[in-house]
Design a binder for these strands. Sequence first.
DNA 1: TTGCATCCCATAAAATACCATGCTATACCA
DNA 2: TGGTATAGCATGGTATTTTATGGGATGCAA
Lengths: 157, 157
Amino acid sequence: MRKVFLFMDTIINKVDAKGRVSLPADYRAIVKELDSEIVCYRSLTAPCIEGCTEDLLEKLAAEIETSTDFFSQTQDDLTNLVFGDARRFTFDSTGRIVLTEKLLKHAGITDTAIFVGKGRKFQIWNPENWAKEEARIRSEVMKKRPVLNTQKSGGEA
Amino acid sequence: MRKVFLFMDTIINKVDAKGRVSLPADYRAIVKELDSEIVCYRSLTAPCIEGCTEDLLEKLAAEIETSTDFFSQTQDDLTNLVFGDARRFTFDSTGRIVLTEKLLKHAGITDTAIFVGKGRKFQIWNPENWAKEEARIRSEVMKKRPVLNTQKSGGEA
DNA sequence: TTGCATCCCATAAAATACCATGCTATACCA
DNA sequence: TGGTATAGCATGGTATTTTATGGGATGCAA
């Protein structure tokens, strides 16, 4: 039995004409062990699909409810945005989910998708876009790293 | 069996001359599993119909009753409006509810309706109006998001 | 009896569950 | 350590079920 439930690794899978993709086996295992379901939505910040367990969304719902007023405009906007876009995805006996046209379009995915672990969440990218994004992130980190170090000690590398 | 009961996704359905609409299958599943019923009322804040399970309204009522400190006059008025306007909608064997003229008029719905998940609640819009509303919300959030981030750390694209 | 509302049936389309296969990664044994 | 057997996984195809939706029948009320 697993102790830690985090989405990790980067896995490429094919997307067929129906939009079917195998959810990486390890992701499936997590969802099963948590006795939860997958929820996907369009990322707000990047051209990719984002996914998490339904449990996490449930927590988010609770948080929105407690931190904003029942009749407030903010609660209205937030819930519309989050839950209006999200959708449950149950996987079949072979471990596949069927992504919607809306999601695939937003991520620019046609016949191949790449799953990127993000801990409690994961993302699904068009592989080419992800390659660029990963490069950007890595260079970004390298740019920031010396700055952070200088502040603390004296800089390195 | 489902653990989490949240209305999600955005689904377009037709409204026939009798005012009949199919409640999205997933919404029905939630209502059934909660062994509850659908309640709809005119949204107080937007030109749309709002719906939730009877259970939620029950909770709201209970909260008002048990709340020690008196509610403000406005809040009281709001709850009056909601409960006064709300009505049960049972769906038939094919999963349809019959919306009233009053509700349809308030939302400007004629032959097509779009269901928007909001977590514990959902909304029913005229598709065109919803398109505008969604755009408004997205731009609103994009404006606010950087602000929220700057307060915490240093902001991000 | 007539109008209105509810219920039931039929059908086409779409979503989803199932089956089969080849491949890959893992485990096992010499 | 190297080779082989095994189990798990991704993937293509097919069958079945569910869902949306139009039309009609039934029952109640005015």
